[in-house]
C-alpha cells in the first residue's frame, strides 16, 4: 500500500506499535499531496518566469487582477484537504489517548537525567522499560524536577512529563526487540544523554524476567554489580570516572580522601560516606558544587548494588 510502507522507510522509523501504521498512513497522505502542491508552485514559478521573461517593450500589462472561479477553486481544494487531514488526525489522536481497559500499568519517573520504571510487582528498573509484546501498556508518568518528555520514535509515542501531576499515555508493542527512549523536552545539561530502552519480550520471556529480576544473583562479582549500577542509575551523566568535572564531582581517586563540604564539616570518603551520598545526597554537599541537584536513590537501589558501587569506587584510582 502506498500509504502504509510497513517497515522502516526513508522518512519514518520502523512501525513497532499498534498505532504506528495509522499515524504513518496519515503522514504519507499529507506528504503526497503537499509534494503535489509544491510541484505546482515550482512548475508555475519557473514556467511563468520562463514564458514571460524579458517581455519588455510590448506595451502595458493586462489589468486582470481577479478571477472569481480560480480564487474559489484554489481556496476550496486546500480547504477540503486540510479538513480531511484535521478529522483523520483528530480521529487517530483520540485513539492514541483512549487507554484500553485492563492495560498493564507501569509508573515512570523522570528526573535529571534518567528514567526509572516502577512495576506493580514491587520493584523498579532504571533506564529500561521491559514489557511483553502484544499487550497494551499504560504509562503513568511523573517528573521529580523539571519538564521532560517521554519519546519512543518506533512506537510514535510522546508525552510531556510535568512535575506535580500524572501524565498518562499508552502503547502496544507489536515487535520483539529493543527500542530507543529519548527525552524530547529540554531538561538541562545532560538532556541529550537522558536515554533509555524499551525491551519488548514475548509473554513467556517476560514472565521469566519478572521472576529473575527480583532475585539478586550472588554469583556476579561485586565490582561488576557496581559497574552495572553505575551505568544503570545514570551516575555517569554527572560523575565521571576519569577525573573530569561534571555536574557533580568525579569519582576518580576519591576513596579514602578527605572531602570539604559547603554545608557540613570535612569527612573521610569511606563505606558509610558513599552509602549516605547515594541515599541522602543533599546532606553533605561537596565544596564547589553548591547547586548539587542529585536526587535520592532511596527505594530504588538495592543494598548489593550499593556494595558494588563502593567496591567500584575503591578501584577508581
Amino acid at each position: 500500500m502506498l500509504l502504509n510502507a510497513g517497515d522502516k522507510t526513508a522518512w519514518l522509523p520502523q512501525q513497532a506499535s499498534t498505532i504506528a501504521a495509522e499515524v504513518d498512513s496519515l503522514f504519507y497522505f499529507i506528504l503526497y499531496w503537499t509534494v503535489f502542491f509544491l510541484a505546482i508552485v515550482v512548475f508555475f514559478t519557473f514556467y511563468f518566469g520562463w514564458k514571460y521573461r524579458n517581455n519588455r517593450g510590448k506595451g502595458l500589462t493586462s489589468s486582470n487582477d481577479h478571477n472569481t472561479f480560480l480564487e474559489i477553486t484554489w481556496t476550496a481544494i486546500p480547504f477540503i484537504l486540510v479538513m480531511i487531514v484535521f478529522f483523520w488526525g483528530a480521529d487517530s489522536y483520540i485513539k492514541m489517548n483512549i487507554i484500553p481497559y485492563g492495560a498493564m500499568e507501569v509508573n515512570v519517573t523522570a528526573q535529571k537525567w534518567s528514567w526509572n520504571f516502577k512495576y506493580k510487582e514491587g520493584f523498579s528498573n532504571p533506564r529500561e522499560l521491559v514489557v511483553p509484546v502484544n499487550r497494551p501498556i499504560k504509562l503513568i508518568l511523573q517528573s521529580q524536577d523539571v519538564l521532560h518528555s517521554f519519546y519512543v520514535p518506533d512506537f510514535r509515542v510522546k508525552m510531556d512529563v510535568i512535575p506535580n501531576r500524572y501524565m498518562m499515555t499508552w502503547f502496544e508493542a507489536i515487535k520483539i526487540g529493543e527500542f530507543d527512549i529519548m527525552c524530547t523536552e529540554y531538561c538541562g545539561k545532560s538532556h541529550s544523554e537522558m536515554l533509555g530502552k524499551v525491551r519488548v519480550l514475548s509473554q513467556s520471556d517476560y514472565d521469566k524476567w519478572i521472576e529473575e529480576v527480583n532475585v539478586v544473583d550472588e554469583s556476579i562479582p561485586l565490582i561488576d554489580v557496581g559497574k552495572t549500577a553505575y551505568k544503570k542509575y545514570a551516575c555517569n551523566t554527572c560523575h565521571s570516572t576519569d577525573g573530569s568535572t561534571g555536574t557533580g564531582p568525579s569519582l576518580k581517586g576519591i576513596w579514602n580522601t578527605i572531602v570539604n563540604h559547603e554545608n557540613t564539616a570535612q569527612m573521610l570518603v569511606d563505606e558509610n560516606y558513599i552509602r549516605e551520598s547515594i541515599l541522602n545526597p543533599q546532606k553533605n554537599i561537596v565544596t564547589g558544587y553548591p547547586n548539587g541537584n542529585m536526587p535520592t536513590f532511596k527505594g530504588l537501589i538495592r543494598d548489593r548494588e550499593i556494595e558494588g558501587l563502593i567496591e567500584y569506587i575503591k578501584e577508581l584510582k
Binding site: I19, F27, L31, F86, G89, K158, T184
Partner: peptide, 15 residues
C-alpha cells in the same frame, strides 16, 4: 500541515 495534524504532531513534536 504535518505539525498541525494532531496524531502526526505527536511524533514530530520537539524533533
Amino acid at each position: 500541515i504535518f505539525l498541525g495534524t494532531l496524531s502526526v504532531d505527536i511524533m514530530l513534536h520537539d524533533t
